[in-house]
Nucleic acid binder design. Structure first.
Length: 493
RNA sequence: GGCGCGGUAGCCAAGUGGUAAGGCAGAGGUCUGCAAAACCUCUAUUCGUCGGUUCGAUUCCGACCCGCGCCUCCA
């Protein structure tokens, strides 16, 4: 089954057709590390992560590169303001980004940093100058000459042909031939970091890093380029212009853009008070798995309305999935198999794959897995699931989770780490819920098991008062005890 | 203004030219010492509004209303 994806360049859903049959080379625009990542950032990164994981599952040999933008105007001016080096300033947020990605189970791509490629950028720009696509202004900045690239606008569907501009739009800006020409290289600003290169001192423009690093890592022409929808213009449009001008070849063949999310029905913004970093949400007591699930619920091209109600609903959904897996792995089944269940497992896995192949329709895929869940639970209740069936269902579930990555119950240590960070930072907004969830491992497993044994003994003796007391103690420690026909079992809240 | 996306149950959200997936929440029931989990039943005669095409439209077309995005550095 071909994987179909919407391609911003053609504005159509197309079969993904890699240059090399079995290999995908993809590049994603990563974060600018000047602050902690917010949930909008992670919506995009998770969307790309789902794509990456699905390509791997589909058998492709995927080379996935993401950049870290560790040089831009904000970074340089903030570093100067704080009296630290650019490296010092960005190290903290780069680290935070890596931690947050891990918290959200984002599979790590190969990372490249802009500041490690300054010389290559200078060479790239020199090449553009040589070919007549770029020019230097009196102050030592370099600009790309859009008039030389007739395809300019092909990604963002903008028509610049009829547009003539007067002198300069912004008199504070450096001089350039046309208002639309964009900076490849900016002359140094007094008091801020700059780099010495063969084209002179200065700092790179925003777009050049991605052209340089993607082409260096993946070749002048590669399969897939991803990012948030805001990057379509100007960032990706400019990348195309630079890259194709220099190489004379098509740059990325397929462009994948994730749509922005809304928060409580409105665009996320600091002024509206609905701006959340990942850490903000965890501090409120929300599990990373709930956040990841909510961010995967709406297909990447649709607007996703991120709400706290939705987050709580997501937590319930994840718990339901985990309960199901728990049931499959902790129950005893009769030997043999049941053809109907085997078929259910197979069909469900196929439905998931078909949904994801259809432009990464995550909602459809999740619907399929919940159908399997309900039917399986019904069969489990009826005792119709045999050993081999349980394994088949488990395989289908884990295949699903190889993409969605929410089943592993590791929220608690992640939340504990963020709690520790928040305390070290002196954050005042640590919720009691986080304290409770992060601390739920205060009881060691053997302590839990001892209490469970005591509780079971009390229940056998029909000493329900003692039994209830012990259950309450465990509940307070974040342990949920389940008494089933097959005996007692427990899990963390 | 230009270009683009969307409006589906209390909330979130798929989807199809042939009569509405899934999740959450809610109600009732089964199971159960309690609890938890799970299952069953119920909850949109209807898919922003108004027209049109069609045997038939939520799905196609048009208009209108509403929300959202991009239009130079926000994922």
């Amino acid at each position: 089954m071909p994987i179909r994806l919407y391609n911003t360049l053609s504005a159509k859903i197309e079969d993904l057709n890699p240059i090399d049959a079995n290999r995908i080379r993809m590049y994603a625009c990563g974060p600018t590390v000047y602050d902690y990542g917010h949930i909008g950032n992670f919506r995009t990164f998770i969307a790309v992560d789902l794509l990456y994981r699905f390509l791997l599952q589909s058998g492709y040999d995927v080379r996935y590169v993401m950049n870290i933008t560790d040089v831009d105007d904000r970074i340089l001016s903030n570093a100067a303001r704080d009296g630290v080096t650019v490296q010092q300033y960005t190290a903290k947020y780069t680290q935070a980004f890596l931690e947050d990605s891990a918290t959200l189970n984002v599979a790590p791509p190969a990372l490249v940093r802009a500041t490690d490629h300054i010389q290559e950028m200078a060479e790239f720009i020199a090449g553009l100058v040589q070919k007549g696509f770029a020019y230097r202004t009196d102050d030592g900045s370099y600009y790309f000459r859009i008039a030389k690239f007739p395809d300019y606008g092909k990604l963002s569907k903008k028509d610049f042909a009829g547009m003539t501009d007067g002198a300069r739009v912004d008199v504070d800006e450096y001089e350039k031939d046309s208002a639309r020409d964009f900076a490849l290289w900016k002359a140094p600003k007094p008091g801020e970091a700059s780099w010495d290169t063969p084209i002179g001192p200065g700092r790179p423009g925003w777009h050049i890093e991605c052209s340089v690093m993607s082409m260096e890592e993946l070749g002048p022409s590669f399969d897939l380029h991803a990012g948030g929808e805001d990057l379509i213009f100007p960032h990706h449009e400019n990348e195309i212009a630079q890259s194709e001008s220099l190489s004379g070849q098509q740059f990325a063949r397929h462009w994948f853009h994730a749509r922005f999310l809304l928060v409580e029905g409105q665009k996320m913004s600091k002024s509206l008070g609905n701006f959340y970093t990942l850490r903000d949400l965890v501090l409120k007591g929300h599990k990373p798995s709930s956040i990841r699930w909510l961010l995967t619920q709406v297909p990447y091209r649709n607007q996703l309305n991120f709400t706290f109600d939705g987050l709580n609903a997501a937590a319930s959904s994840v718990e339901k999935l985990r309960n199901f897996r728990f049931r499959l792995t902790s129950s005893q089944f009769p030997a043999g198999s049941n053809a109907a269940i085997a078929q259910l497992a197979t069909e469900s896995a196929e439905r998931v794959t078909a949904a994801l192949s259809d432009d990464l329709n995550t909602a459809e895929a999740q619907g399929a897995i919940f159908d399997m869940l309900r039917k399986s639970n019904t069969a489990l209740d009826a005792g119709e699931v045999h050993q081999e069936d349980a394994l088949s269902l488990l395989a289908a579930l884990d295949r699903f989770d190889a993409i969605f990555a929410v089943l592993k119950d590791d929220d608690q240590p992640k939340m504990k780490a963020i709690l520790d960070w928040a305390k070290a930072e002196g954050r005042a907004d640590i919720s009691p819920q986080l304290e409770e969830l992060a601390g739920s491992a205060q009881l060691a497993d053997d302590q839990i098991n001892q209490k469970l044994a005591d509780m079971e003994a009390a229940r056998k003796a029909r000493n329900f008062k003692l039994s209830d007391t012990l259950r309450a103690e465990l509940t307070n420690a974040g342990i949920i005890v389940e008494n089933t026909k097959e005996g007692v079992r427990w899990r963390r809240k």
